[in-house]
Amino acid sequence: MSTENVSKINHLMQSQPHGIVFLSSWLSKKGYSLDLQKRYKKSQWLEPIGTGAMKRRGDKVQIEGAIFALQQQLNMSVHIGGKSALAMLGKLHYLEFNKKEVILFGQAHEKLPKWFLDYHWEQKVKYHPSNFLPQHLNIIAFEVRNFSINISGPIRALMECLYLAPKEQSLVECYDFMEGLNNLSPATVQAILEQCNSIKVKRLFLFMAEKARHSWFKYIKYDNIDLGKGKRSVVPNGVYLPQYEITVPRELVNHKSGI
């Protein structure tokens, strides 16, 4: 291999963090031709992990390193969200990051690449594409070892939990999550509620915030939030809450605390 090509691969290795995925399409845009990429693989600088995806030789790539590539190299909005994000943020002392499952959210038009779906990650991946919240709203940078990825902030993460409820997320557990969010900024909560387009999520969020008696709740301006019209039933044979025109599980109404 020529000195120039060795210099180029050295620059790549030094400029990018360990533990990430390198995408062939991104490398091509950076001036690393497909032919050059083949040489790097033949010289064992890079190892393929799937079609169009590689890693450093000897690197152990975890799912965060793949998400880094989706976000930084493909400019996708796919991020860790819901209960997984709340666990990473350490918002609830009894909730640990689930090593067997990770919850991902992204915009409705985004599909996970084949290499991502085919790779054997340590965790089972549950991906939920949806436009119920704007792409960049309450997304924060989170440090993972020697690089950072975007994950849901606490308000968005809870709303993602509510979005999945009750089929894929317990509403009682959602309330326990809400109890842990006692230091939120009313202005931030207000802005996110106003931009959320899921009526179910907004009604449940407000009900739980009121039930938890958070100090920030009294500053929320209902008139600026579109809560829709008409009754909504989250579960059959539950308790109807006239203020929010929604039917919820009886155990949620009677639930006091999960902490």
Rank of each mutant, 00 (worst) to 15 (best):
A209I: 01
A141G: 07
L70T: 01
S2Q: 12
E64S: 11
L164D: 06
L241A: 06
S28D: 09
Q62I: 14
I49R: 09
C161Q: 01
A141F: 08
H136A: 12
E210D: 11
G180F: 03
M1F: 14
S2V: 10
R56M: 09
K167N: 12
S24Q: 13
P186D: 07
K38V: 14
K41N: 10
I149H: 10
L227C: 01
K55I: 10
T247I: 08
G19D: 05
M54S: 13
P242I: 07
G153T: 05
L34N: 14
G50K: 00
L181G: 00
E110Y: 06
V201Y: 00
M159N: 08
T188S: 13
Q73C: 05
L92M: 12
Q14I: 01
E194L: 05
H11T: 12
Y244V: 02
V239S: 05
P129V: 02
F142T: 11
F97C: 01
E110R: 08
K202F: 04
K83Y: 03
V6L: 13
A141H: 12
D59V: 10
I199Y: 01
V253R: 02
W26F: 13
W45L: 05
G230M: 10
L181D: 03
H93R: 11
L27V: 10
E47H: 08
Y222E: 08
E96G: 11
L74S: 14
I67N: 04
S170G: 03
L86A: 06
L112A: 09
G65S: 08
K29E: 15
S257C: 11
K100C: 05
V102Y: 02
S33D: 00
L158C: 02
G19F: 07
W26R: 12
D223E: 15
G31K: 01
